[in-house]
């Protein structure tokens, strides 16, 4: 049975520290766009922590949620790409093929979660930060769309390793950068086709819900409702 990768984010555990955001940048060679571009909304955080403030001081409540590519099973970003740069893999991931992208940005418009990012300029890393680039991940040029891939380089590496060693992949063997770096262990990654994996079990939790689930996108990230009072 092929894998079907999914993720569960426990909002009760998430502290909004954004370690996942930083780890994602480091793992995936995401450029920092600078303060002026970020002020224009062009920051490229493949995973971001959305914060909403409710109420009036002093009864202010903060609601936050890490939002990343939901790897939708009925992704609206896929049929609209004219060059098949955005398509669905057999393991349920929404692949973004940088080399085929001509930058129409239709996928970004179609994505209801706004988790697709455009390289407005050719990225640059000031020396010596270029030495920190991850050799497993390509660097994208200006004009190309990019987004969270569930760290597909880690998935592929683990699958190749398991195949070489002629064994099955263990649940929890693969951890995308965000999952790996979360200090509260709020994120779980696993195979939704394996009913015993932790991701599958948590996805079946009664606290679970999907972000914008009524849009019909069939996202594969399940959010577990926050139950603490604040």
């Amino acid at each position: 049975m092929p894998h079907r990768w999914g993720m569960v984010v426990d909002l009760d555990r998430c502290t909004g520290c954004e370690a996942c955001v930083t780890a994602c940048h480091a793992e995936n060679n995401i450029p920092t766009v600078g303060d002026r571009q970020a002020a224009r909304g062009r920051a490229m955080h493949w995973i971001r922590v959305e914060r909403y403030f409710e109420g009036v001081f002093p009864d202010v409540r903060v609601k936050f949620r890490p939002v990343l590519c939901q790897q939708c099973d009925a992704a609206p970003c896929e049929p609209v790409c004219p060059t098949y740069a955005s398509h669905h893999t057999e393991e349920g991931l929404n692949a973004q093929v940088y080399n085929r992208c001509i930058g129409t940005r239709y996928c970004a418009n179609a994505c209801p979660y706004s988790v697709r990012f455009f390289n407005f300029f050719n990225p640059a890393w000031e020396t010596p930060l270029h030495l920190q680039l991850n050799p497993d991940v390509s660097v994208r040029e200006g004009g190309v769309m990019e987004k969270c891939t569930f760290c597909v380089q880690r998935i592929t590496a683990a699958e190749i390793q398991a195949k070489a060693e002629r064994r099955e992949l263990k649940d929890g063997a693969i951890a995308p950068a965000c999952v790996q770096s979360c200090p509260a262990k709020a994120m779980v990654f696993g195979d939704l086709n394996d009913p015993e994996s932790e991701a599958s079990r948590l996805a079946r939790s009664p606290r679970g819900s999907k972000l914008l689930g009524d849009l019909g996108t069939q996202p594969k990230v399940t959010y577990l409702e926050r139950q603490s009072p604040v």
Partner: peptide, 23 residues
């Protein structure tokens, strides 16, 4: 309006060996 306008011709269905084909 393309990000990489020099590649617009990938919308033309021409036979190639680069795994390029219009959707």
């Amino acid at each position: 309006h393309l990000g990489r306008p020099w590649l617009f011709f990938w919308l033309v269905p021409y036979p190639n060996r680069r795994l390029i084909w219009p959707n």
